[in-house]
Amino acid sequence: MPDKDHKCTCSEQPLVPKVVEVIDIIDRTPDVKSFFVRNVDGNGLPFQVDPGQCGMVSMPIGEAMISCTWQEEQEYLEFAIKRVGLLTDELHQIEIGQQIGVRGPYGNGFPVEACKGKDMVFIAGGIGLAPLRSFIKYCFKHREDYGKITILYGSRSQADLCFKEELFDLWPKESNTEVFVTIDNAEPDWNGHVGFVPAYLEELNPSSAGAVAVVCGPPIMIKFVLQSLEKMGYNDDQVITTLEMRMKCGIGKCGRCNIGSEFICLDGPVYYLKQLRDLPPEW
């Protein structure tokens, strides 16, 4: 443990948040908003992030660990936040120009280097696309480093699809890239696929040869997607997921997010399935 270090760079005291200004808010779905923040003096960011890293977002009511979107031009930080609890409820009521607290970055991030040269299969459900979006954007920025990119995304309904512009306009235009979108139940004006993500994944059956699957979504989806991937011939070292655990401190001290001797905020949240198999079954 003494050789592990949290990555927070934004403050002298790791638990004290830095106050930032919300410079823009975009409605992604009826209950998901993206918040864009930067330092209150207008210059720069409270911290830089790698794809898959998180930041602690705070309001006077409390704090929560939120995945932070990697930006090509790091001029602001983006947090895509679904309204689900006390803090996110408050956050959804703020307006552009207001200030919130952030601290970070925390966590290991995606193994962007280790995945180079591989075919990438991104599988996301609901707001689970938010962390994967960082990795997807990173792959497109360094397009020549990665093989074929397959993106499979599902949500409950059309209205709940996040990041529609990227899903339907931007990403399909990228070279050697396929984007598949599904919703759980049929809707009158929906011409796309209807059904759950794991079943659609098996139907599409992207080859496991030289591929890495990156999975994020609700726990039930992850559970079945992992089973499907196993059936399709993906080994445990070809599957990456990012865990969501309750985190309080972000620096491995509060004891909230441990799985075995690992603290998700320090050692995670991104794990190969192979690593998870060695841990107690809490994940």
Binding site: P60, K248, C249
Partner: peptide
């Protein structure tokens, strides 16, 4: 035992 809760 040192587990902490952080509250606002």
């Amino acid at each position: 035992c040192y587990c902490l809760d952080l509250q606002a």
